[in-house]
Design a protein around this nucleic acid. Structure first.
Length: 857
RNA sequence: GCCGAGGUGGCGGAAUAGGCAGACGCGCUAGGUUCAGGACCUAGUGGCCGCAAGGUCGUGUGGGUUCAAGUCCCUCCCUCGGUACCA
């Protein structure tokens, strides 16, 4: 709990006492400053404050147990950025919370017979302690824990609103099923033979009634990224995931045969209606509802066997383009509506039941998967698209190129038309006959939100024999998760055996009824938590609309790229659904998203407690201090890259901090062991050295400012190291006592402050004390501004190339005209030697940054 | 498989708009300093040839565009993330 403000008085004695420490001892400094910041409530955000608001959000953590170094990697730079923004005078809100529902707690419960809630809450306790040791500026007042009934009741409430609005519905959908342990998550299915993680039984597919959210309604809107700044890769992944395809829906009819009267409609979706004349067979997904009725009696056994095998496949396997195509003819034909041709119908697993219409017309000449299938089964391959003059009888591979000049052939009256136009006409003509229409299909599917699990938000539905699925009345929310839970050694959701939970009267008729035992997908918990942070204790609404109006969309969201197409898309969908219900007035939840990479274990695998490859930051903090650990994580490499963990190099950033310490508190000291200690270099004077120091400090400030803004931490720290090294080289010289030195140190500390907050605060307080000034935190200082005149380049070192190879350099005034540059360059001995007496044929000036002399022959 | 990212010295990485490859740090080598070090300071450090000056090769592979390619285009290989019930 935060402490009350005003109880702590900072005395001069304390400040003076601190100056006696003359060695950098982070473990002595850091807890003291953390306590001070907490006492002063430096990081408790006043949400009513009218300064410019800056909502900075970091993805909340799953409380898997120990906080590991990966959490620090995610959160440290975000904290540095929060401090940076505060130094710009913004009212920064940096909340924290826990994504507390989920599978790992349940796995632990099944394995070790612990209570999921106890397990989770214990983990949260530990993680809170470790998070505080980072010295981060989280506003703990606003903490949200999703497993808290005060939170998940609003998941239930949202679900009921969406249900009322027709955005939620119930439908059958397949799950991976173990006869002993019920529904299995993907990670609980192991091995190529797909067996259960716990009992080893063979996993099958089972259709269950499940709740859905109608998110496909927003497919087109989700493709519009104009109001949300995503990194390009994320935008590309979401776009591909949504997978909008334009084409046509075409109706085939089944042909009459000995066992089937014919005339049944078979609708297919195709992106290539122009190739309709090339359709030589048809493929139904194993899940297609007409497979059952169309299959000929003599084909039945084989077809059913095939469908069984298809059920054992994962979707990834089924969609793999490089494996051998499999399928079975069902002994029925379809009639191509454009030419009346009879083509055989197959069932094959490369067609999915959930995409398009679950059926395709197969055009092997112009589709790679159809081609593979046709070759495998000896089916005809007919070219119907070609470029002018092309050998159209060539069917040695699928022709899938798509160029402007393609025309149709072998397509009756459409032959000779440009392919695109031909396709449009084919669809239009079919439409006139009621057999086709232009259509758009998406890869995106509606969101299945039912989970057959205990540790989640109970779905507020009661099943009544008379009234069916009845919503729990809002005044009865929350439907509480029972605390006493007995897994009985099985993975099956214990709610299904909990009579006290299950038995409930129907809200409509009062007759005995049963509760829904499924819980909500935890991605729902994470789809709106930043709105709750703004009023975490609000009792009668999920959030305060005024707060939401003034603080959201979130200014900056940071989190892992692994969430690209799931969490980062679900939350956008959720926001749009809330908007349509009038709950928020925004189209996107966040303005800007940055995806940092992941720290992997030393084994190169994702860090997780179950893998046993996590790295505990505590021992590093004990040895080096939090500032060093923070800085090291930021220095490792580009933040969006991540990589395997190694401690190699941590000494380097620790040394850097020690040098910052040294140049600040002991500028006039000299090192023994340095032969040039206390003396300027031979080519330096006091004037050039101080001038150079000022220029360097201000140029560092310029680039460091840009690096903070762009999250380029590793480069930012490298620049600070360079400045510190420059100071270090002039320690003990005449420069050390100069105003230039003092200014450089001051700028250095301000630049270090967001990244390494404790040491900066300590050194700042000592400077203030030394100057006899009153203490104030460095973290409430304004970010400095650089001197534009100092930063400007006056001379440049011009590289000179001959035929693209570096031959010489020359120092020239900046902004020299090309003729001047040429005169200087051609007068150089090295240049003449490289030219070998010839005159250059061409001289390339690269914007005054480089010269290239080209000689041919 | 598909979608996305990445591959640069012994190692982590830098090179912001196609223009000096290797900033900064680790490690290593040498020297200094210290009662001592896993402390500190100074210098050096991509490969090859060379006493040196300098030359030459060099950014996963093979090709291409360009005065100029780590950067742009094409091919292939490898690693990582996601692939709808891990979060």
């Amino acid at each position: 709990m935060p402490q009350t403000a005003g109880t702590i008085v900072v005395t001069d004695q304390e400040t003076t006492a601190r100056t006696r420490i003359d060695r950098y001892e982070p473990t002595a400094i850091e807890p003291r400053w953390q306590a001070r910041w907490a006492e002063l409530e430096l990081y408790r955000t006043d949400l009513e404050d009218t300064r410019k608001r800056y909502y900075l959000l970091t993805m909340f953590a799953y409380p898997s147990g120990d906080l590991h170094i990966g959490h620090w990697y995610i959160k440290t730079p975000t904290d540095a950025f929060a401090r940076f923004q505060r130094m710009h005078g913004n009212n920064v809100f940096l909340p924290i919370g826990f994504d507390a529902f989920g599978l790992p707690a349940e796995n632990a419960a099944i394995k070790n017979n612990v209570n999921p809630r106890d397990w989770t809450m214990k983990n949260i306790e530990n993680m809170r302690r470790q998070l505080r040791s980072m010295g981060a500026t989280f506003d703990w007042e606003s903490e949200v824990v999703t497993a808290d009934p005060d939170y998940y009741r609003w998941n239930q409430w949202f679900f009921l609103q969406f249900l009322k609005a027709g955005l939620a519905y119930r439908q059958k959908s397949p799950v991976d099923w173990c006869p002993n342990d019920g529904t299995l998550a993907r990670e609980q299915v192991e091995g190529a033979d797909r067996h259960c993680w716990r009992c080893g039984a063979k996993v099958e597919k089972r259709d269950l009634e499940q709740w859905y959210l109608r998110v496909t309604k927003y497919a087109d809107e989700l493709l519009d990224f104009s109001q949300i700044q995503f990194p390009d890769p994320i935008r590309a992944m979401q776009t591909n995931w949504i997978g909008r395809s334009e084409g046509g829906e075409i109706t085939f009819e089944t042909a009459a045969s000995a066992h089937h009267p014919g005339g049944a409609e078979l609708r297919v979706f195709t992106t290539r209606p122009d190739t309709l004349f090339g359709a030589t067979f048809m493929v139904l997904a194993p899940e297609h509802p007409l497979v059952e009725t169309l299959t000929a009696p003599d084909r039945r056994a084989e077809v059913e066997g095939y469908i069984e095998r298809a059920k054992a496949q994962t979707e990834i396997e089924r969609l793999s383009t490089d494996r051998e195509k499999t399928g079975v003819a069902i002994g029925a034909d379809a009639i191509n509506p454009v030419n009346g041709e009879r083509i055989p119908i197959f069932v094959a697993d490369y067609v999915l039941g959930g995409y398009g219409t679950g059926a395709i017309m197969a055009v092997p000449a112009h589709d790679e998967r159809d081609y593979g299938f046709a070759v495998e089964f000896g089916l005809p391959i007919r070219r119907v698209v070609a470029r002018p003059g092309e050998e159209a009888s060539d069917v040695s591979a699928a022709y899938v190129a798509h160029t402007e000049d393609e025309i149709l052939l072998n397509s009756a009256a459409y032959s000779g038309l440009p392919a695109d136009e031909g396709g449009r006409r084919i669809v239009a003509d079919l439409a006139a006959r009621g057999l086709g229409k232009a259509a758009v299909t998406y890869r995106l599917r509606d969101w299945v939100i039912s989970r057959q699990r205990y540790w989640g938000t109970p779905i507020p539905i009661i099943y009544c024999a008379t009234h069916g699925a009845v919503p729990v009345p809002e005044e009865d929310l929350p439907v509480r998760l029972p605390d006493n839970v007995d897994y009985g050694g099985s993975g099956v959701n214990p709610l299904t055996r909990d009579e006290a939970f299950l038995n409930v009267p129907c809200p409509i008729c009062g007759e005995p009824a049963r509760r829904e035992t499924d819980t909500l997908d935890t991605f729902i918990d994470s789809s709106w938590y930043w709105y709750r942070y703004l009023s975490p204790h609000l009792y009668d609404a999920p959030f305060d609309p005024d707060m939401v109006g003034s603080w959201t969309p979130v200014e900056q969201y940071t989190g892992g790229a692994e969430h690209a197409v799931m969490h980062l898309l679900y939350a956008r969908e959720w926001t749009k659904m809330m908007r349509d219900l009038g709950l928020v007035q925004q189209n996107e939840p966040w303005r800007r998203v940055f995806n940092q990479g992941q720290i992997l274990g030393m084994d190169g695998e994702r860090m997780s407690k179950s893998r046993g490859n996590t790295v505990d930051p505590d021992h590093l903090v004990a040895r080096y201090g939090a500032d060093t650990v923070r800085l090291f994580l930021m220095f490792m490499g580009p933040w969006d890259q991540g990589g395997p963990w190694t401690e190699t190099g941590i000494d380097g950033v620790h040394r850097f901090l020690r040098r910052v310490w040294t140049v600040t508190i002991d500028p006039t000291g000299v090192e023994r062991g340095d032969p040039t200690a206390g003396r300027l270099a031979q080519d330096e004077t006091e004037a050039t050295a101080t001038g150079n120091l000022r220029t360097s400090a201000h140029r560092t400030l310029r680039s460091v400012t840009a690096d903070y803004e762009q999250f380029r931490w590793n480069v930012m720290i490298a620049k600070l190291m360079e400045l510190t090294n420059l100071l270090m080289r002039h320690r003990g010289t005449v420069v050390a006592g100069s105003p230039a030195w003092d200014e450089a140190v001051r700028l250095l500390l301000l630049m270090v402050a967001p990244a390494a907050p404790h040491i900066a605060e300590e050194l700042w307080s000592r400077r203030l004390a030394a100057a006899g000034d009153e203490w104030r935190s460095i973290h409430t200082e304004r970010w400095p501004e650089w001197d534009a005149a100092l930063v400007a380049e006056r001379t440049i070192e011009l590289p000179i190339q001959v035929n693209g190879k570096l031959r010489d350099r020359v120092e020239v005034p900046a902004g020299l005209p090309p003729e001047e540059i040429e005169r200087i360059v051609l007068a150089r001995d090295k240049v003449q030697a490289a030219l070998g007496g010839r005159a250059p044929d061409k001289i390339v000036h690269a914007g005054g940054r480089l010269v290239n002399l080209v000689v041919r022959g």
